[in-house]
Design a binder for these strands. Structure first.
Length: 255
DNA sequence: ATGGCGCGCGCAGCGCGA
């Protein structure tokens, strides 16, 4: 199975990119974030035409998550449990015997903002939930835009970024908690070097200069980590015309 | 050099993302 994540920064604008990428890669699951699309406008027909069914949880203008798969999907969550949040950032579904949880973690804006505290609270609630999910599902995938660069090797200029949102210690501690309860960062199962990123600023030719951050992740339960075969950060779509500022990350599993 | 781009909304220019 091939399972991928991609923040596409508006599905309406990037639909052709998503279709092109599906055709080239044929993932069994593609998790999308920042669809920015209301459910009634979701392009169900366009995906069905290429053999993918869709599950989605959207809102106007902001946020929005979706799962695409040729397999049958049974949605089990569209929000964090017991947590009041109007923002559509969560979509969990059972797909091909796996529990797949697609997340668009809050950005946080800056460490002195209300949005930062919302992010930390959201992550705390996520951590509680994931602990119970992990007990229930031996084959669990948690993937998406985490808006956290876990370590300095995931940051192009750690000194410039030190202490800022996306790399601050409380955010990194929340990410490490997910690893401490048993999840594996699939990328680090295969690659230890720095310089591998999933997001680059649109400005200042950041992609050309590889000035990016690794903030999009695929976390695997121990049983799935044992079955993982390869990980790819596909930089190609970032070079297409009018690209998303994120690029797809895909793991291959021997299931 | 702290801007720089691109999105939605909606028709000017702002809020937001990372």
């Amino acid at each position: 199975m091939k399972i991928a994540t991609w923040n596409i920064n508006s599905l309406r604008v990037r639909l052709a990119h998503v279709l092109r990428w599906l055709d080239a890669n044929h993932p069994d699951v593609l998790a999308l974030q920042e669809t920015k699309t209301e459910d009634r406008n979701f392009p169900v027909v366009e995906f069905e035409a290429v053999g993918y069914s869709a599950a989605f949880c959207g809102q106007p203008t902001y946020n929005g998550v979706a799962l695409l798969s040729p397999l049958t999907m049974e949605v089990f969550a569209t929000a964090l449990p017991d947590y009041h949040d109007a923002q559509k950032r969560v979509l969990g579904a059972s797909i091909g015997g796996l529990a797949v949880l697609n997340l668009y973690v809050p950005n946080g804006q800056s460490i002195d903002s209300d949005k930062y505290h919302y992010k930390l609270g959201w992550l705390a609630q996520l951590n509680q939930w994931v602990a119970t999910l992990l007990k229930k599902h031996s084959q669990l995938v948690i993937l998406g835009d985490f808006n956290i660069a876990p370590e300095d090797r995931d940051v192009y200029d750690p000194q410039a970024w030190a202490g800022q949102v996306l790399v601050s210690e409380p955010e990194r501690a929340a990410f490490r908690k997910l690893l401490q309860i048993g999840l594996k960062d699939s990328f680090r199962l295969f690659q230890q070097m720095g310089g591998h990123y999933s997001w680059w600023d649109y400005r200042a030719a950041a992609f050309r200069r590889n000035q990016g951050l690794r903030i999009d992740h695929i976390l695997l339960s121990p049983a799935l980590a044992d079955l993982s075969r390869a990980i790819v950060i596909d930089r190609e779509p970032r070079g297409w015309e009018r690209p998303s500022d994120h690029t797809p990350v895909m793991v291959e599993l021997g299931v």
